[in-house]
Amino acid sequence: MIQIELSHEDGREGEDWFCPGELLVVKVRWQLPKDNCELSLQVLWETEGKGTDESEAAHEMEWESEKSSGEQTFEVLMPRGPVSFDGNMLKIRWYVDCYVEALGIKARKPLMLSTTGAPIRLPEPVIPAGMAKVMKLFGMKTPPTESTPTT
């Protein structure tokens, strides 16, 4: 079993969002079935949605635990971007992963990279004005058009 706790530099807990450049404190506790295991920690982003999934680790750490249980604290600077994002076809999520590859044990804690406490959310897609007229003719609901900027 692996547990991940995230906190801010000033000790605040419970808030799962971090600003770019902020210090993230990661506390990892583990209890494994055997001694001498290699643990890995990653702070990474992943894309979700319609496109092919992609991911990139901003920080990566590995350490060896002589005993089957223990705990370790890490401090990492949150990167500039990409910030957490909720688009129509694309979403960007941040996670802290800790795993023991040899034993197939993995723990994951989601977090947000944001300046506001929420991911950037996109409005409905904009459609060309001509298309909106055609849709209106057929009595269809029209999303925002390019001549009426989204709010």
Binding site: E56, G81, G87
Partner: peptide, 14 residues
């Protein structure tokens, strides 16, 4: 103010 920045991964882009 709440615009998403440019993002240019291999298969996903803003």
């Amino acid at each position: 103010d709440d615009a998403m920045h440019t993002f240019n991964a291999t298969s996903n882009k803003i």
